[in-house]
Design a protein around this nucleic acid. Sequence first.
DNA 1: GCCAACGTTGGC
DNA 2: GCCAACGTTGGC
Length: 156
Amino acid sequence: MTPMIRLWLMKSEPGVFSIDDLARADNRTGGWDGVRNYQARNFLKAMRKGDRAFFYHSSVQPPAVVGTVEVVREAYPDPTQFDKKSAAYDPAASQDNPRWFQVDVRLLAKFKNPVGLEAIKSSPELRDMPLLRHSRLSVQPVTPRQWKRIEQMAGH
DNA sequence: GCCAACGTTGGC
DNA sequence: GCCAACGTTGGC
């Protein structure tokens, strides 16, 4: 039986963690920590090894999909929730009862031609992306059709 | 820096 | 359980 590969989009502010940071990491792999939204967390927990995701840069000009990553480790407790020095510290979380999770991702490709938010808005095939409707959802599903369209726009 | 959208908190 | 107040995200 062939496991279904799911497709996602994950947002990050490049000033905090950028696609180039991931490119420089050991094995081009890093933990996607700091997610503190329940709906986004539930999507993180639904991710399976081998799933792919777009890496989206938010809060920069221009906001854009800048590449693709692959899930290499499924959800496990995000250690920053226990770290009092972290901005993502959550006093309500405990080791016994973690509230927040992260996955590890490996960089697959950095787009030569990032796909800007403006271009996404102008493409009729992409009008239903949660990105355009729920701007605050930092981890969200992508349909195969949307995936193909964005890769096409990126020249990949 | 502003502010719309929307998620979270807490008083009742 | 409602909802006002508050906080955060993220485009502009």
